[in-house]
């Protein structure tokens, strides 16, 4: 009985992870279409990096959702995933989120820099009193700060304890 419930939970986890891997990819393909075209034709500078940034952003959001959900539910006494108790799982998932967000930012800034022909440092500076686009980018930047801070605190706590 105990074995079968573990198997059911494990299947649920595998299914959930499959969906997590699937959804961003499908959303990406839906908006991008045939990826092969980007390799068969000449495309504007930095466009591949832009697509990479888009894909990383999509995956980062859904992995962040997974991390938050399992963290919050665990705090309330629920076990969302089989490995919720495992600190290594939480840490690894957090590292994946940080990696994806950092890569998203790096690829996007690189793409814009390649397109404009100079380092687009202004994308890394929050600007809330300008136009709509920089304001939206600034919200993303501000959101990245607590994320990186949380990751840094997690790493420091591990060293201190």
């Amino acid at each position: 009985m105990k074995v079968s419930s573990t198997v059911v939970r494990s299947v649920k986890l595998e299914l959930l992870l499959a969906v997590v891997f699937l959804l961003p990819g499908l959303a990406f393909l839906q908006t991008t279409g045939d990826i092969g075209i980007y390799f068969r034709y000449r495309i504007p500078d930095g466009h591949i990096l832009y697509l990479g940034a888009k894909l990383c952003g999509l995956y980062a959001v859904i992995f962040l959702w997974l991390q938050l959900l399992q963290g919050l539910l665990q705090a309330c006494g629920y076990r969302f995933l089989d490995r919720s108790d495992d600190p290594a799982f939480h840490r690894n998932l957090g590292l994946v989120v940080v990696f994806l967000f950092s890569t998203h930012i790096a690829l996007f800034v690189s793409a814009v820099s390649m397109r404009s022909g100079h380092f687009a440092y202004q994308l890394l500076l929050p600007l809330f009193f300008g136009a709509y686009y920089p304001s939206i980018l600034s919200i993303g930047l501000i959101a990245a700060w607590p994320l990186l801070t949380a990751a840094a605190i997690g790493a420091m706590r591990r060293r201190l304890t």
Binding site: E14, L15, L17, A18, V20, F21, L22, G25, L26, L29
Partner: peptide
């Protein structure tokens, strides 16, 4: 790994 492979095939 199985989830990743399954998702990759569907993609």
């Amino acid at each position: 790994i199985q989830s990743m492979i399954f998702a990759f095939i569907v993609l």
